[in-house]
Simulated assay, not measured.
Amino acid sequence: MRSLDLTAAVWHRSSYSNQDGGQCLEVACGFTAVIPVRDSKNPHGPTLAFAADGWSSFVSAVKDGAVGA
């Protein structure tokens, strides 16, 4: 497994995040093959990297109501 350099990543918080910052995730844009995702409450903690096509399928499923919260 190779390491992903996220030092220059620009993170965007979910529009579903509340004002208190609870249960939020952030996504870094600008990567072609993967989508880095992290917990906004722990920005220096672990990051998950999803294949771009897998992430797109997941987001579509959530929008369609196929994945519950």
Rank of each mutant, 00 (worst) to 15 (best):
V10M: 11
V10L: 12
V10I: 10
W11A: 02
W11T: 00
W11I: 00
H12M: 06
H12C: 07
H12G: 06
H12F: 12
R13K: 14
R13E: 12
R13A: 10
R13I: 14
R13T: 13
R13G: 08
R13V: 15
S14G: 01
S14M: 01
S14A: 05
S15E: 01
S15T: 07
S15H: 01
Y16I: 02
Y16E: 08
S17K: 01
S17E: 01
S17L: 02
N18H: 03
N18R: 00
N18Q: 04
Q19W: 10
Q19E: 14
Q19F: 12
D20Q: 13
G21S: 04
G21T: 02
G22L: 13
G22H: 13
G22V: 09
Q23C: 13
Q23G: 11
Q23K: 13
Q23N: 15
C24F: 06
C24S: 03
L25A: 00
L25P: 06
E26P: 10
E26G: 07
E26T: 06
V27E: 02
V27K: 09
V27R: 14
A28H: 06
A28W: 05
C29R: 15
G30M: 03
G30Y: 07
G30A: 03
G30I: 04
G30D: 06
G30N: 03
F31H: 08
F31M: 02
T32G: 12
T32M: 10
A33C: 10
A33I: 10
A33D: 15
V34N: 04
I35C: 13
P36Q: 01
V37C: 08
R38L: 05
R38Q: 05
R38G: 05
D39L: 11
D39G: 10
S40Q: 09
S40N: 14
S40W: 07
S40D: 15
